[in-house]
Amino acid sequence: MSAPLLEVNNLKVSFKMFAGEVQAVRGVSFTLDKGEVLAIVGESGCGKSVTAQTIMRLTPTPPSFIKDGSIIFDGKTDVTKLSEKQMMKIRGQEMGMIFQDPMTSLNPTMTVGAQIAEGIRKHEKLSKSAAMRRAVELLTLVGISNPGERINQYPHEMSGGMRQRVMIAIALACHPKLLIADEPTTALDVTIQAQIMDVMRDIQEKTGTAIILITHDLGVVAEMAQRVIVMYAGKVVEQGDLNDIFYKSQHPYTWGLLSSVPRLDSDKKAALASIPGTPPDLFAPPKGCAFAARCPYAMKICQEQDPEHLPVSGPTHTAACWLMHPDAPKVERPVAAGGGVTHV
């Protein structure tokens, strides 16, 4: 069996602030196989984006620093040990990233063609004319019409959906093995969201690029992902394949996320479910389970000791919850979680 493309082991990332240390990522571990689409979901502030940016070594240092753990890329390279000069050779060529807001990520003073060609010229040593021809091919690949004219436009001359397609083209310019998409459909309307996801799915099928999809939109996850990681307060609380998480989930936080998805077959007058309370302060994370204060099934041990991951329906489906313990009271999974995403 071949080694995974990416192996994250016990990753801990903190930020040194004036008020103290923010423990943004607290022992995250997962693997990503070649050609696989992995989704990381959770509320804002749960550590999704920090995890993704740390894989690319894009978190500013200081204030951020890696406290512990390793990130093994392509079976041999520990990203956490590389210098910035070494990382510059990997970014773009081996790993690509699609950021949340293309308007602030693209350079407003450069044409989109020049921005796409920049990485190609740096990593593949092509001439300017050859790189621009590749830029036209990439704009065609991501579904932009009249690419020969569009390469001479500036970001402000394009719509939000077109700018996001340009970001995808930049990320794919040097045929990376890993593509990280951080909230790629944020701030886009539903129609454009669907088009962007179609583009990403089509490109993934054509190129075989592995994708890490960072999102809070479970509808996007249902369309794209093969495996799902659920994060809360800087930790992985549940992980498994798509069906495991959507139909066999065992963590109350996962139930809450699924129950909050609107259903087309439900009573329109019914109130949309929500998770009460707020996430914990990561300046001083709780001693026990971070979700205990918001969990309707919390027990005394949940406040005192953090649960370990236990297998649920197979070796790849695990959940960190004391309800999995043989001595815990039996709790029925909420009905809403069982089909809350069927019609997304």
Rank of each mutant, 00 (worst) to 15 (best):
M1I: 14
L5P: 03
K12T: 06
F15Q: 12
K16M: 03
F18W: 15
G20R: 06
T31K: 13
K34F: 07
L38C: 00
C46M: 02
V50I: 15
F65W: 05
I66V: 04
S70F: 00
K81S: 11
P102H: 13
S105V: 04
T109F: 14
G113M: 06
A130K: 13
V142I: 12
G143E: 12
N146S: 09
H156N: 12
H156T: 13
E157R: 13
G160Y: 05
A171C: 02
L172P: 13
A173E: 02
A173V: 10
H175K: 15
I180F: 11
E183W: 10
A194R: 13
I196R: 02
M197I: 13
E205H: 09
I211S: 08
G219A: 04
M224H: 06
Y232D: 04
A233N: 00
A233H: 06
V236I: 02
E238Y: 08
D241I: 03
Y247N: 14
H251C: 00
H251T: 01
S260D: 04
K269P: 10
A271L: 08
A273W: 07
P276L: 00
P276C: 03
D281M: 01
A284V: 15
A290T: 09
A293R: 14
K300C: 14
H309K: 10
H309I: 10
V312P: 02
V312C: 06
K330E: 15
K330N: 10
